[in-house]
């Protein structure tokens, strides 16, 4: 089971509270989808600068693997206050630890409501859905 101390978007981003800020990241499923277990397949990541205002669901960055570019979407609205510079230069950190050291950005949220997000159980269930 994925960590239950955070909430999720169906597009595989997670958000976790940390004091008066929240931290965004992507799940191991997203990493696996892009890299298929090869950590060196993650090649670029574009993240926003501190000060950028994000709307809920807005694309805040992109990540490229050897074979795909994928959008990174904001689970909550707010202002970017910190960016994980480590993973911008060393994407292997994200590949190895997407839940902790591989966090992407820290945001001061405008709204902390998570009613539109999935809990861990809901995210797990979403992964098992077939094409309809």
């Amino acid at each position: 089971m994925r960590p239950d101390d955070r909430h999720y978007l169906p597009s595989h981003e997670w958000v976790k509270s940390d004091g008066d800020t929240v931290v965004f990241g992507i799940t191991d499923f997203a990493v696996e989808e892009l890299s298929h277990g090869n950590e060196d397949d993650l090649v670029y990541c574009d993240l926003p600068e501190p000060g950028r205002k994000l709307a809920q669901g807005e694309t805040f960055g992109e990540i490229e693997s050897v074979k795909a570019v994928a959008d990174l979407n904001s689970p909550l609205p707010g202002e970017v206050v910190e960016v994980n510079k480590t993973i911008e230069d060393h994407l292997q950190v994200l590949a190895r630890d997407p839940w902790d050291k591989g966090w992407l950005i820290r945001v001061k949220p405008d709204d902390t409501s998570t009613s539109h997000l999935l809990d861990a159980e809901g995210y797990e269930a979403s992964l098992g859905k077939a094409d309809g």
């Binding site: 989808e33 890299s35 298929h36 693997s65 795909a68 094409d131």
Partner: peptide, 13 residues
């Protein structure tokens, strides 16, 4: 759609 059989598995597949 990403849920299509052609794309729903890891990208390399």
């Amino acid at each position: 759609p990403q849920t299509h059989a052609l794309f729903r598995d890891p990208v390399p597949l």
